[in-house]
Amino acid sequence: MSLFHIFLVAIIQGITEFLPVSSSGHLILLPALTGITDQGLAIDVAVHVGTLGAVILYFWADVRKAALGTPRMLTGRTDTEGSRLAFLLLIATIPVVIVGACLSALDLSSALRSVKVIGWTMLVFGIVLWWADQRGASHKTAADWNLRDAIVMGLWQALALIPGTSRSGITITGARQLGYERSEAARLAMLMSIPTIIASGVLLGVEVYATADFETAKDCAFAAVFAFGAAYLALGLMMRLLQSINFTPYVIYRIALGLVLLWIAYTTGDPMGPPA
């Protein structure tokens, strides 16, 4: 891969991973709409590692708290702030793991990677995000996160396995619907991304390990660094903006992109669909 191709993939992943606009949808669309060769599984893993590093660094205080509370949580005690956070993150991750395993077992993941699917999910879940953001109350903070809310948000997060949905977007939607403040909804969604990215990265990493070589490792290192920088900047910008604006700008972008993709899919044919 050329350095420009690696840079392009990493920047797209880094910017869109934590914004409610779907990173997977954009990465799937890149080769489909531009003709660029698909970046491959190794680069996918690398950019996810980069974004994982960014969210861990940005929310280091919460991550450290949960990490220190994990041993206590594993003994069945959730009587401290850290062990409680670790437990709730674990519970919130279970739905996406179960649904992901089912999709993989039924070989449905590839069938969902189409411009039509991404167009519809961009459009529909963008409108759902707007509805939840406008109608949702804003009386809860991360300190109010409980078992019921973790399960509900985990179920919302599982929908993100459909390309174009946006993991952060759909989780924020669930949090806003439950009454969390905008910045707190985003904070919880970002923390929930950590075990999810780790789980998917480990699974994909096992597949990549057997075929990795020096050239691939070098490309992956560049991709991870670029993705880390882009993700950290995008995450910081979004969290600052949420102090003064709502999610409507992201909704407008999703709706516009969704309509364009549906127009392409239904008028010129789906670039990722079966041949006519």
Rank of each mutant, 00 (worst) to 15 (best):
residue 3 L to M: 15
residue 6 I to F: 03
residue 9 V to Y: 01
residue 10 A to E: 05
residue 10 A to V: 06
residue 13 Q to P: 06
residue 15 I to N: 09
residue 15 I to W: 10
residue 18 F to L: 07
residue 21 V to Y: 09
residue 22 S to Y: 06
residue 26 H to W: 08
residue 26 H to G: 02
residue 27 L to K: 05
residue 28 I to V: 15
residue 30 L to P: 05
residue 32 A to L: 14
residue 32 A to T: 02
residue 33 L to A: 11
residue 34 T to P: 01
residue 34 T to G: 05
residue 36 I to V: 14
residue 37 T to L: 14
residue 39 Q to N: 14
residue 51 T to H: 11
residue 55 V to P: 01
residue 58 Y to M: 09
residue 64 R to H: 13
residue 64 R to V: 02
residue 64 R to N: 10
residue 65 K to Y: 07
residue 67 A to Q: 00
residue 68 L to H: 10
residue 71 P to S: 04
residue 73 M to G: 04
residue 77 R to S: 13
residue 82 G to E: 03
residue 83 S to D: 02
residue 87 F to E: 02
residue 87 F to V: 12
residue 92 A to M: 01
residue 99 V to N: 12
residue 102 C to G: 13
residue 103 L to H: 11
residue 109 S to P: 01
residue 110 S to K: 14
residue 112 L to Q: 01
residue 116 K to D: 03
residue 127 I to N: 01
residue 132 A to G: 04
residue 134 Q to K: 15
residue 136 G to T: 02
residue 139 H to V: 11
residue 152 V to T: 13
residue 153 M to I: 15
residue 154 G to E: 11
residue 155 L to D: 04
residue 157 Q to W: 06
residue 162 I to Y: 03
residue 162 I to P: 03
residue 169 G to Y: 01
residue 170 I to M: 00
residue 175 A to F: 05
residue 175 A to R: 03
residue 175 A to M: 14
residue 178 L to Q: 05
residue 183 S to V: 15
residue 186 A to L: 08
residue 190 M to E: 03
residue 191 L to S: 00
residue 191 L to V: 05
residue 192 M to Y: 08
residue 200 S to R: 08
residue 201 G to T: 11
residue 201 G to P: 00
residue 204 L to I: 10
residue 210 A to M: 10
residue 217 A to P: 11
residue 223 A to L: 07
residue 228 F to N: 08
residue 228 F to P: 08
residue 230 A to G: 10
residue 233 L to A: 15
residue 237 L to M: 15
residue 237 L to N: 10
residue 238 M to N: 09
residue 246 N to F: 12
residue 258 G to L: 06
residue 258 G to M: 05
residue 258 G to K: 01
residue 259 L to D: 06
residue 260 V to M: 12
residue 261 L to P: 00
residue 262 L to K: 02
residue 263 W to Q: 08
residue 264 I to Y: 01
residue 266 Y to D: 00
residue 275 P to N: 03
residue 275 P to Y: 09
residue 276 A to H: 15
